[in-house]
Amino acid sequence: MDKVKVGIIGTGNIGTDLLFKVLRSEILECGMFAGRNPDSEGIKRAQSMGVPTSCESIKAIEDNPNCCEIVFDATSAKVHQTNAPILAKLNKFAIDLTPSQIGKMCVPVLNGDECLSEKNINLITCGGQGSIPIAYAYMKVHPEIEYIEIVASIASKSAGPGTRANIDEFTQTTRDAIVAFTGVPRAKAIIILNPAEPPVIMRNTVYAQIPQPKIDLLKVEIAAIVKSVQQYVPGYKVTVEPVFENGRVTTTVEVVGLGDFLPKYSGNLDIITCGAVSIAEKYARYKILA
């Protein structure tokens, strides 16, 4: 089968994990792996794997626009602000893994198809990817819900300096995305970093106050949407099925990473890279190869 070339900007943990996933893809291949630091571990690793690399970051793609059709941006929100207009001018499909909030917010299971007609999509946050499908299922069964709250706990080791320095943006972006995708009037996001050893697996708890919840129906809807998410995030699973306790409905999902480059406890990063690659594959299949 023909393969579609992708570029990856950012050679850190996320960029490298993306690279591993792209190399395994039946439909994608890596045409450019670009960063800024020639001594980065990521660049060296990619070179040893025979992947074209550059230390010129976005300029590598500007200078050689044919190296890729889809670009993953795994740099930072600030750098993506510079990259976004350049990628738009080059007419590349940009998949932004930073919390820049520039492109259209994407939760592949909910609006993946819609996103294919955009030029820049954003993967929100890991807490958003993990919890929004569950919140969506809640609202489907109980559209009268007025408030949804999510708690994302992440292993400390798996929260990079970017997340730590911008913890406010994480909570606000996640909250805004819950409202946007589910239509719930009010939402709240809480993030907890747990340093326990061995590292804890990424988990998301979704709460809603529902006086008379239809638990059986909630179970059905949640099982269905979890199954759909598992199509692109195999390690996504329910650990606490919807239960009514203390005047609220509680559901918890866990995300075990695929362990491509990042460790398995980094489900928070895996859910983002898996989502990004699934959208890239869809775009390649329906917008380029079709």
């Binding site: 747990n194 050893e197 988990r203 709460y207 606490v240 509680t250």
Partner: peptide, 17 residues
């Protein structure tokens, strides 16, 4: 035993179940 920290109250329900 699970080294749960402040703010992780959601573990209580899981452990109880």
């Amino acid at each position: 035993r699970r080294k749960i920290i402040g703010g992780q109250e959601d573990f209580i329900v899981e452990v109880a179940m």
